[in-house]
């Protein structure tokens, strides 16, 4: 790849672009990621022939901006996912949210847990959940039915998810205890144990398809990371409303790190925990 000239971004331009991206996409760029943003902007400025950050900002605000923003988001979000990606979220689920839901459902005598990874890509997030819950089969989740559903619009990644074979990058964050139990290495490939796979089903689903979305019912946890950032506000509201409807009254909805639903849905309430937050009805 040709080396782009990286123009240092001023604090003012950084704030302009950060606020623009936040307001349109709902993703917040932390100041610690300034240099990362700078280098990715350089690629887009090179591709569009724009010379300054201020001009690039004007381009984003122009009628051509909608299309350009999609390219920019592709540059600044890493599409590759991996196991145990959002550790604060997983800790919150294990420490508090899961025990809380289990208690509520135990009282009702309804021992079934449903989890949805709503942009499951190659399946890492859904399988991470499966591993964590599998560890609780002898204790908290004894005699519980566990259903984990992964959906994605892209059939290729759905097929990959079903296969359950990964590269070193995907598995690098898996704690040793889980890795020893549920991952087998074979010739540089990392193969997921069948006992994990059996908890998860994967399907193709377009989050924008109302006729399908209304059937995704009664989930206790819904995860949807780094997808809503691609939708415009109206589409975002529509999709989030489906998540809202499909979530149990005591359930939790999670978005990605640095994402925000502010201004998208005013019914969800934030529940905070160390390093993150979730949404609740």
């Amino acid at each position: 790849m040709a080396k782009e000239l990286i123009v240092a971004i001023s604090d003012k331009d950084f704030e302009l672009l950060r606020d623009f991206i936040y307001n349109i996409c709902g993703m917040y760029f932390h100041i610690s990621k300034k240099y990362f943003l700078e280098s990715r902007l350089a690629r887009r400025m090179d591709a569009t022939g724009v010379k300054t950050h201020a001009d690039y900002y004007l381009l984003l605000k122009s009628p051509r901006g909608t299309e350009e923003l999609k390219y920019l988001m592709d540059e600044i979000t890493t599409n590759e996912t991996y196991f145990f990606r959002n550790v604060p979220q997983l800790n919150a689920m294990e420490n508090k949210l899961l025990p809380e839901i289990v208690e509520a459902k135990n009282k009702m005598g309804f021992r079934k847990l449903r989890i949805w990874s709503a942009a499951s890509s190659s399946g890492e997030e859904a399988y991470t959940m499966a591993m964590i819950l599998l560890e609780k089969r002898a204790t908290l989740l004894k005699d519980w039915i566990i259903e984990i559903v992964g959906t994605d619009i892209n059939e290729t990644v759905v097929a990959q998810a079903k296969e359950g074979v990964y590269n070193a990058y995907s598995v690098r964050n898996i704690p040793d205890m889980y890795k020893r139990k549920y991952i087998r290495e074979d010739n540089g490939k990392f193969i997921l144990a069948p006992e994990v796979k059996k908890f998860v089903t994967f399907n193709k689903l377009n989050l924008y398809d109302d006729s399908k979305m209304i059937f995704m019912k009664s989930f206790d946890f819904i995860f949807c990371a780094n997808v809503l950032i691609y939708f415009d506000t109206a589409s975002k509201s529509k999709v989030v409303q489906h998540f809202y409807n499909n979530l149990q009254p005591y359930g939790y909805f999670f978005v990605g790190q640095s994402e925000s639903l502010h201004g998208v849905n005013d019914k969800f309430k934030t529940v905070h925990f160390p390093g993150g937050f979730a949404y609740k009805k």
Binding site: N95, F273, P274, G275
Partner: peptide
Amino acid sequence: DLFCGVRELNYGGREWVSFNLY
């Protein structure tokens, strides 16, 4: 205090703070 408790100004994580803001 609650916000600091969930955003890395939390005594090095000695207390596991969680709250429903509303």
